[in-house]
C-alpha cells in the first residue's frame, strides 16, 4: 500500500451540541482533502453538521495487552456507579 495517501480518522457531529463521534477513516494527501473526502464519504445523506479529521498517526491508542491492567480493576467496584440513590419522582432522564 505504498502508493496510498496517509490515513485520517473522521469524527462527525450529528447535531448542535452533540459530541463528535467516530465515523470511520479516509485516505488523503492533505488536511483539506481529508475534510472533503470525509464529507463525501460520510455525510452524503445529511448525517452531520460538523466534521473533524485527525491524522491516524496522531491518535494514541491503548493496546489489547493493556486491557487487563487498564480495565479489570473497575469490574468489582460497584460503588463507583451511582446506583444507590433514590430517583426523585417524575425524573426520567437522569
Amino acid at each position: 500500500m505504498d502508493n496510498q495517501f496517509s490515513q485520517w480518522e473522521v469524527f462527525i457531529q450529528k447535531k448542535n451540541g452533540a459530541a463528535h463521534e467516530h465515523a470511520g477513516s479516509v485516505h488523503a494527501a492533505d488536511k483539506n482533502m481529508a475534510l472533503q473526502n470525509a464529507r463525501d464519504v460520510y455525510t452524503r445523506r445529511n448525517e452531520g453538521r460538523s466534521i473533524w479529521v485527525v491524522p491516524t498517526d496522531s491518535i494514541v491508542a491503548s493496546t489489547i495487552e493493556d486491557e487487563v491492567v487498564f480495565f479489570d480493576p473497575a469490574n468489582d467496584k460497584i460503588y463507583r456507579n451511582p446506583n444507590f440513590y433514590k430517583m426523585p419522582k417524575g425524573t426520567t432522564n437522569l
Binding site: Q4, F5, V26, H27, A28, Q36, N37, D40, V41, R44
Partner: peptide
Amino acid sequence: PTLEEDLALTN
C-alpha cells in the same frame, strides 16, 4: 483514482 475520489466525482 481512489475510493474517496470516486465518491467525490459521482457526488
